[in-house]
Design a protein around this nucleic acid. Sequence first.
DNA 1: ACCTGAACACCGTTCAAGT
DNA 2: ACCTGAACACCGTTCAAGT
Lengths: 218, 218
Amino acid sequence: MPRPTRTASKSRRAYHHGNLRRALLDEALATIRAEGVEGVTLRDIGARLGVSRTALYRHFADKRALLAAVATEGFRMLRERLVAAWEEGNRGDDAFHAMGVAYVQFAVDNPSHYRVMFGGFVDAQARDPELGTEARGAFQALVDAVVALQRDGVFLAEDAVLMSTHTWALVHGVAMLAIDGQLPGPADVDALMRYSFRRLRTGILVNTGTSRVACAPG
Amino acid sequence: MPRPTRTASKSRRAYHHGNLRRALLDEALATIRAEGVEGVTLRDIGARLGVSRTALYRHFADKRALLAAVATEGFRMLRERLVAAWEEGNRGDDAFHAMGVAYVQFAVDNPSHYRVMFGGFVDAQARDPELGTEARGAFQALVDAVVALQRDGVFLAEDAVLMSTHTWALVHGVAMLAIDGQLPGPADVDALMRYSFRRLRTGILVNTGTSRVACAPG
DNA sequence: ACCTGAACACCGTTCAAGT
DNA sequence: ACCTGAACACCGTTCAAGT
């Protein structure tokens, strides 16, 4: 396949002439990974790319737009992980658990990136429609799994969105506590996830409800 | 009761001579409420208090220490709300639900403050021991309720800390989604909380487990 | 179109100096 | 002890100017 007629040129870097946006995104993400969001400065990113510190404004409205793009990419990655876990687990009950584990694992592996995704971008979503689209896409992966499990009679036949949001809140909560260091140790993340998903399925209440009263005890 | 021998003095503000720390804390919190964390600048706070912008360093090591103190106060407030909900609800099953509602309500009422409390202060806890103490105190209010409900045979007699952490993760997740605007509307917060607590108690799984197989269907 | 470089209006923090 | 004011080393963003 012939490359575009554009020559390789004498520019010091390959990301000139069109892929500077991509390079800015990659550099921002690398910095976020290494130092957290507060380590991201437009000057450093420009310098690291051998580019003026104002070159960024050709591709992003401002710093927040850059971070919104990073967040958008995060949701895209997250959705891929969720879908992969669901499909590789053969779309059953265990696969649902695997999705939850994959979700928390993504947060633990990319804590700073995850934080940018949920860093109070209430209006970032309004400013950057693609962010909302991608976030909804990741959520949809969860809804799809819930719907499938409801169809198969594994999960209760309730409002799938409500059930999915409930599940999302749980894994989101576990993820946040994990990356915030609120859990004693890293081994506790696994233990909590195992417990949480068991109880997500069966609840924490002692079984004295109407559905059991009709049964003989034992 | 006689006031301390310190005179009212001619100082323009009452918070000189000992309560500047308190004033700094209040001013920081007010700014956080009004503009979010990123609106907090030491210069503005100093100016608003009629004090040099470096006066703060007499009471806090740096800006992060100030924010850690704000977070500490947040956990103290949160614990009070939780305990109040638990006791006013007469320490029963409904009171547990009320605690959850109070938790989410605190986050919704004080979104920026709540975010400071969970803003990735992994090591802030190490730097500021009081923060960890107060955070653990709020969590303990939840554990106490779980233990009481287990004693009364309402909740499963499992590891109370694990069960509490599971519950905490759920309400934390709901709270984060709510203040992040990830939920369609404010009415959905209530609906989600009702659903989530019902399912926290009873689970989302169809009841075909061993305990029900023994029963006649229907 | 794309990038530059100087300039502007901000930051947190340090430190010698005052009382 | 407590506070000040100048100074330092940073920020994001704007804008006229270059190619």
